[in-house]
Amino acid sequence: MRGNHVVAEAAIRAGCRFYFGYPITPQNETPEYMAAALSKLKDGVFIQAESELAAINMVIGGSMAGVRVMTSSSSPGISLKQEGISYLAALELPAVIVNMCRGGPGLGNIAPAQSDYFQATRGGGHGDYRNIVLAPSSCQELAELTMEAFDLADIYRIPVIILADGMLGQMMEPVEFPDHKNPKKLSPKDWALTGAKGRPGRVIRSLILDPVLEEEHNWKLMRKYERIQKKEVRYETFLLGDAKMAVVAFGTAARIAKGAVQKVREQGLKVGLLRPISLWPFPEKVLVELGKRVKLFFVFEMNMGQMVEDVRIALGRDGDIHFYGRPGGVVPTPLEISRIISSHYLRKRL
């Protein structure tokens, strides 16, 4: 099954019946699948909005009403959604937003890239906030993380970003889906706008004119983010047990890096891989622990160096951290990466 279809099917299985989007390559198969699948469901709603701005605001409306709701797009379209994502964060509304990232900046191209790491993990829109960001590296993981994203969004009342790329969206792999969730059996949302039946009117708002109260709201969000940082870190390790050098990569880049690690292992080099799955919260503590026994780090990304900053923050001055990036939608081969890994490794005489 194609990655973009996997996302859509997983959303429906998670109990999402509301999809609002606007076409953009390389993710069009997601809205197309949603249009077909939701029209067959009695409670399904699909709207092709007039813009990404409209789509994300329809998401806000659906989320206010208490339903599971999703939108998907790719880099330039995600930029347009940032205003709405900031509001989702401020209003503490759950939503799932999929970014099948492409080469940029500007219109860029439609090839796979990881250039939206900063945008996704730092909030992206105006104001002081974070999103949960999940980075799958296979179609199977696209299915699992998409379903999980809806649960996390509801638990923490936060927008959750699935940050993948054109490669994952377009590739086809066998997938085993978790079972369907019945949207009617999801836990009720006692904060949603449903009409003030037998109660005073409820308000969902983000305008807080008193700076002291706005500060309080910011700290409240911060405490939530700290809970998430404690509980929701996700990562995968590969051959790190005896490793003298650690490669750090996420998503498609991690998949390429895994192949590269296998190649250099064949040459007898003790190299392992750390793959952050949650990009925010970033597996900082895992890196700190790893840094106690591994002294050489190599970060590979399909951008000019974004996640590497989080690696540097985690390891501080002690880390010997090297970076290799291929921006613009270029996808290097495992062989290319393995050569760079082994040259760093051999130069250090590990």
Binding site: M58, G62, V69, A196
Partner: peptide, 18 residues
Amino acid sequence: FDMGESPHGRGTALATGL
């Protein structure tokens, strides 16, 4: 009664979702 604040100009899109 229940009220949900909209970003500037996006009221009818938000209302569509609701």
